[in-house]
């Protein structure tokens, strides 16, 4: 069902990853991406894999939940590995039939690619979206981008827009689910028929959804105005996060792993 979408969902918790400063977590995510792309040898890939698994364990999120979030990219994984297996030309021919030649290099490369994409997705979601509440996330982003205010980039407004957008994703999913059920109760059929008739069946869902979105936006704007919201100037935060020792330590660990990966690449 529509509720099962876990991509980009926050799981409340109290793990080390949950407690890190959001700014640091954004930097860590960039470092993690660097680590994944730096890995070239099998050995360094194994380290990346181990590191990703370690991150999942530290986050305290169940493996089942994390693996479920990979569902949407299974198709991408299959296509990538198929391309690599069938189109890589190497020296070590291991299988040949009609016009299909499969080389050991291709298989090897396909496995590494799948590892790279999955660890990239799992690592970034565990580091950021699963363990950071949307408010913390945009707050961290705002503070990280604060220097851009000097060149008149409306950083606060952008982060507010993002906060609101993120905040309303679950609400909209819930609303869609509710309206779909209501129309199903009136005999709507979303699952059979031609593509055109299925698209038409969505009209009774989309129109109420649009109307309620506009209504919500309007109500939110009124509520904000009632509380004298007037933009970012002179606004202070209720909680200003300060960098802690643990934040610095974690960044150091990531940098060390980066260096180890580069070293491991040489020993391949």
């Amino acid at each position: 069902m529509i509720k099962d979408i876990t991509l980009g969902q926050f799981f409340p918790g109290n793990s080390l990853l949950h407690r890190l400063d959001p700014r640091i977590k954004i930097i860590l995510t960039i470092l993690f991406i660097a680590i994944v792309f730096l890995a070239k040898s099998t050995l360094s890939y194994l380290l990346v894999l181990a590191f990703t698994i370690a991150l999942i364990i530290i986050s305290g999120i169940s493996f089942k939940t994390v693996l479920k979030s990979l569902k949407p990219i299974v198709f991408v994984l299959i296509i990538t590995s198929a391309l690599n297996i069938f189109w890589t030309v190497g020296d070590d021919l291991i299988f040949s039939f009609w016009i299909i030649d499969i080389y050991a290099e291709g298989v090897n490369f396909a496995i590494l690619m799948v590892l790279r994409i999955t660890s990239l997705l799992i690592g970034t979601s565990v580091l950021l979206t699963y363990t950071t509440s949307p408010i913390m996330l945009t707050d961290g982003l705002e503070r990280l981008l604060a220097p851009l205010k000097a060149i008149k980039v409306p950083v606060h407004e952008f982060s507010l827009m993002m906060t609101i957008a993120l905040r309303f994703i679950p609400t909209l999913i819930e609303e869609t689910d509710k309206i779909m059920s209501a129309q199903k109760a009136r005999g709507a059929d979303f699952t059979t028929g031609s593509i055109i008739s299925r698209a038409k069946a969505l009209i009774p869902v989309l129109i109420p959804l649009f109307i309620s979105s506009f209504r919500r936006a309007d109500e939110l704007a009124t509520a904000m105005e009632c509380r004298c919201y007037h933009g970012g100037d002179g606004r202070t935060k209720m909680n200003t996060p300060h960098l802690k020792v643990i934040d610095i330590l974690t960044v150091s660990v990531f940098i060390v792993i980066c260096v180890i990966i580069v070293m491991l690449n040489r020993f391949a």
Binding site: K178, I179, S181, A182, Q183, A185, R186, I203, P204, I207, P208, I211, S212
Partner: peptide, 11 residues
């Protein structure tokens, strides 16, 4: 089945 706040399903 009539849901809660069914007026939001009018289209």
């Amino acid at each position: 089945l009539v849901f809660q706040y069914p007026e939001y399903q009018l289209f």
